[in-house]
């Protein structure tokens, strides 16, 4: 009996020590919850959530300060993923209309550009190339479609162009949505 108690007590102490040591030795730096939330956000960096970018919004959600329905580019899918991650109830998007906008990229009408560099300073992901008094251009692959470059442009030569599907990015429609379907017998 005594040996049993001693053994169990000994084991408990041992595990306690191991746990205590691991907690110090393998401590995770940073804020893992905010990281996980940030990984779900679309990184558009548009600020439509009211924060200065995706990361600050992620941090606010991690501390419970912000609702999970404020990201229009992420839309419903992101809201549901956030609800799942944080164990909260899904809520209606704050701005449904903004969420339904098609994905677009900025496009500079090069003939009208005066080379003022204001848009370059506004772009959160450095997707605009150009120099003072020289025509600017948007690197389409890197543009997140945040629209932050639109207001600073003094000559309003930046437009948003919807990104259409190509055969390579096209998605098969959900079968129940299509009335006729062919090929497969």
């Amino acid at each position: 009996m005594i040996t049993a108690i001693l053994t169990i007590a000994g084991l408990a102490t041992l595990f306690g020590l191991i746990l205590g040591y691991s907690a110090i030795r393998f401590r995770v730096e940073g804020d893992p919850i905010a990281d996980q939330i940030d990984a779900l956000l679309p990184q558009t960096q548009c600020g439509q959530c009211g924060f200065a970018g995706c990361r600050p919004y992620a941090e606010a959600m991690a501390t419970g300060e912000a609702e999970i329905n404020r990201c229009p580019p992420g839309g419903e899918a992101t809201m549901i993923a956030l609800a799942e991650l944080l164990g909260r109830d899904p809520v209606a998007l704050e701005d449904e209309a903004a969420a339904e906008k098609p994905k677009s990229v900025a496009y500079i009408v090069e003939d009208e550009c005066i080379g003022c560099t204001l848009c370059i300073q506004a772009c959160p992901v450095d997707a605009i190339m150009g120099a003072a008094k020289q025509m600017h251009t948007v690197i389409t692959d890197e543009c997140t479609g945040c629209e932050l470059c639109l207001p600073p442009c003094p000559v309003e030569c930046i437009h948003m162009q919807p990104l259409g599907a190509t055969p390579q990015t096209w998605k098969w429609p959900y079968p129940a949505d299509t009335v006729t379907e062919a090929g497969h017998g």
């Binding site: 679309p42 990015t169 098969w172 959900y174």
Partner: peptide, 24 residues
Amino acid sequence: RFAKTEIWAQEREREKSDLARRRH
């Protein structure tokens, strides 16, 4: 086919958002 193309699209989105995060 629907599921495969959806998954590929999600992967492309994720790559794109990772790139945007790095650049930001």
